[in-house]
Structures are given as structure tokens and as C-alpha cells.
Design a protein around this nucleic acid. Structure first.
Length: 271
DNA sequence: AATCGCGCCTGACGGC
DNA sequence: TGCCGTCAGGCGCGAT
């Protein structure tokens, strides 16, 4: 599943291949994504030149003169740059064809993803306007988390996965950040000290940065099959390791459901 | 206001 | 082999 580091990796790979390019045609094969793809999108986008590729949370925004294409990859979304003539597969829902004969193809088997158009500033779009600070920005820090957590009874893991608190921290990186911070993911958000939130903020940044760096190493392949997610390269410390020994203390990593999500942690290192 | 849990969807996987 | 049930999960949204 593309998490923030994967989306950022995709953004970096996409940028040099689409910025400055004119979209001469849009092919919609299936409009039924998380929300219906606007039927008027091809007509609006045709003729637009991509000015920039930006990311907010896990959303990608292709800014054009008349507005922005908003993309979300959901669980299984993929973007590739291909020769426009490449035969589409079963789940290739949309193509953006450029004047140079290449094509940005959106594939999403599970269709949890989104393809939308925003005529105004995409950051003001209803899906994005209430997003919390970007985890890699200075606005995300221990003091901020501590203040936001006042009175919150939900678990700290659910708290940092709330996109109004921090944008773009998904299930994998929530677990992976709580581990180096030494915080039990099931602890109530409102009971965690300021000092520990400072540790957590630092851990979130460090974990995401490492994953982005790992993802960056696969960027050279973007124009073929597209970048493999960062977590294929990065050794996950707890996620998906239930029953296996903790790399630090050797105790078995535990998996517990929390807010309908699998949560992985070391009961010894995280309290 | 905070929290809970639903639903969207397909592919992978295990059991019979 | 093949069929079927189960699980995975981002994330917005309606209900409580």
C-alpha cells in the first residue's frame, strides 16, 4: 500500500517526466473509483500543461493552468509512465497522454483510489483543507502533538493516524515510528508526556525520511514498471513481524487490533 | 466534540 | 483442481 514515503517517491519520479508536458488526451476507462471520476475531467484537462507535481498528505496534485488534477492511490493504486500505445490492463482506469507520445497511466485494482479535478487551489479542496501538518514540516513537533492530545482518550496510534492531527501517517509507519519512540501504541493519547511526544515526533520524521531515502534508490526504474515501495528496501522493525523476535530485546513482537487495524509492537521496548 | 464502526473493492491465501 | 470464505486496509462519513 502506498504510504507517504511511497507517494513522495512517486512524486519525485513523476516530476521530471510530466512537468512542462502538455496533456493532449485523457482516456477514462472506468470512472468508478472511491468517488466517481468527474465525467467532464477529460474535457477540462485536455490541452492543459502540467506545471508542477505536488504532494499533500498522500494526495498527489498535478497543477495546471486551469486547476489541478488530484490523485490518491488508495491501497493498490499505481502510476506509470509508458508509451501511449501500450495495451491497457484490466485495472488501468485512466490515461493522460502527453504530446511527446508518453502516457501517465493510473492503475488501481481495488479502486480505493481517487481521481478528481479542482478548479481552485487544491489545498483548499474539502479532502485536504482539514489535513493536519505535514509530518516532515516544522509544524509537526512534540509540543504540537502534546497540545492536540489534551483530553483525547483514543490510543496514541489512532491519534497519530488521524489525518486532522498529522497528515499522511498510515498504519505501517505509525507502528514503525512508535517502536523507536518506545511508546506502547495502545496507550491513551492524552496520557503521554510532552517529552515522549517530542521523541515520537522525532521518530516519525526519522522513519519517514529513511523510507523516502530508500524509495529514492528505486527511482531510476520509474519509467518502466515504476518505483517499488520504500518498505521493500527498508527493514521494518515491527510491522508484520508478529511472533518474531524484537531486534532490540529479543522478545516476541505482538500484534493486536486497535481501531480495526493491525498494530505491531514490542511489549518490552514499548511501554 | 470525540469516538466508533461501516463500506467501498479485489487479490491472495487457506481449507476442504 | 476448484470453489468459497476470510482477510487486508486508507479514509471519509454517518451514527452515537
Amino acid at each position: 500500500m502506498p504510504e507517504l514515503p511511497e507517494v513522495e517517491t512517486i512524486r519525485c519520479g513523476l516530476e521530471p517526466l510530466v512537468v512542462g508536458r502538455k496533456i493532449v488526451e485523457v482516456i477514462l476507462r472506468n470512472r468508478s473509483l472511491r468517488w466517481p471520476v468527474p465525467a467532464e475531467l477529460p474535457g477540462i484537462v485536455r490541452g492543459q500543461v502540467v506545471r508542477s507535481v505536488e504532494r499533500r498528505a498522500k494526495y498527489l496534485m498535478l497543477r495546471c493552468q486551469a486547476g489541478s488534477i488530484i490523485l490518491h492511490l488508495g491501497m493498490t493504486g499505481r502510476l506509470r509512465i509508458l508509451p501511449a500505445a501500450t495495451h491497457p490492463g484490466k485495472h488501468d482506469h485512466a490515461d493522460f497522454i502527453f504530446e511527446n507520445g508518453t502516457c501517465l497511466r493510473f492503475c488501481d485494482p481495488r479502486r480505493f483510489g481517487a481521481l478528481l479535478w479542482s478548479a481552485a487551489d487544491p489545498l483548499q479542496h474539502p479532502l485536504l483543507i482539514e489535513s493536519g501538518p505535514e509530518p516532515l514540516s516544522a509544524a509537526l513537533n512534540g509540543d504540537y502533538l502534546y497540545e492536540r492530545a489534551r483530553g483525547r482518550k483514543i490510543s496514541v496510534k489512532q491519534f497519530i493516524m488521524d489525518h486532522k492531527v498529522v497528515s499522511g501517517v498510515g498504519n505501517i509507519y505509525a507502528s514503525e515510528s512508535l517502536f523507536p519512540a518506545g511508546i506502547n501504541p495502545l496507550a491513551a493519547a492524552g496520557k503521554i508526556s510532552r517529552t515522549r511526544y517530542q521523541r515520537l515526533a522525532a521518530a516519525i520524521k526519522k522513519t519517514l525520511r529513511k523510507a523516502i531515502a530508500a524509495g529514492g534508490t528505486t527511482l531510476k526504474d520509474f519509467q518502466g514498471a515504476s518505483g517499488e515501495p520504500g518498505y521493500f528496501q527498508l527493514k521494518l522493525k515491527v510491522y508484520g513481524r508478529a511472533g518474531e523476535p524484537c531486534y532490540v530485546c529479543g522478545r516476541r513482537v505482538r500484534c493486536q487490533r486497535s481501531g480495526q487495524r493491525s498494530t505491531f509492537y514490542c511489549p518490552q521496548c514499548q511501554r
